[in-house]
Structures are given as C-alpha cells and as structure tokens.
C-alpha cells in the first residue's frame, strides 16, 4: 500500500479512535503507570567498555580507519 493511502486511511482510524474517547472528562494525564519520581544515581567512577567499540563498528554500514562512523556530508557545506 502506498504511503499516502496508509496516511489517508490512518486518519480515519484516528478519527474513529478520538470519537470513542471524546467524552472522557478526566484531566489527569497518566504518562507513567507507576508514580515513582526522582529515580536517580550518584555520579561514580566511570567504566570504559573495552569491547563495545568493535561490535558497534562491525554493524555500522560505513566507518573510517580511525573508528568514526561515516554518514552523509552536510548539505550546507557540500
């Protein structure tokens, strides 16, 4: 199916969904199911993950010899 068609039919879906919940009076927004706050950690000695780099570079479509990931050149400088 074409992207445009998915979008068009999708909008009908959205309309149907929003109608189904249109009469909900609630004003409280529940972004999280648990009501925890301030889950933080204390800054600690860092850990360098020695073998991660190779695994990451192996997957990347293009890398350079220094270990950078190669992507597109900026359009505004090209």
């Amino acid at each position: 199916m074409k992207r445009e068609e998915i979008e068009k039919r999708g909008e009908e879906l959205i309309k149907e969904f929003s109608e189904a919940i249109a009469d909900v009076k609630e004003e409280v927004e529940t972004y999280y199911v648990s009501e925890l706050v301030n889950v933080v950690r204390i800054d600690s000695e860092p850990v360098q993950k020695k073998d991660f780099k190779d695994k990451m570079l192996k997957i990347a479509p293009s890398v350079d010899e220094e270990g950078n990931i190669r992507v597109e050149i900026g359009k505004w400088v090209g």
């Binding site: 992207r3 998915i6 979008e7 999708g10 909008e11 879906l13 959205i14 969904f17 929003s18 919940i21 249109a22 909900v24 609630e26 004003e27 409280v28 927004e29 529940t30 972004y31």
Partner: peptide, 26 residues
C-alpha cells in the same frame, strides 16, 4: 510511525495524544 508522527504534532497532540493519556488515567 506515520500516525504517531501525525498525532504528536503541536497542532493535534491535545486532541489525540493528550486525550489518550487522560483516558489512560480513567
């Protein structure tokens, strides 16, 4: 993806995304 992008736009988020989040509370 397309619908997620669509309903989280500034213009529509109140009507769709926020409404859904509120329904979730219910």
């Amino acid at each position: 993806i397309l619908l997620g992008s669509y309903i989280s736009q500034k213009e529509y988020r109140g009507k769709y995304y926020h409404k859904a989040i509120k329904t979730r509370s219910v």
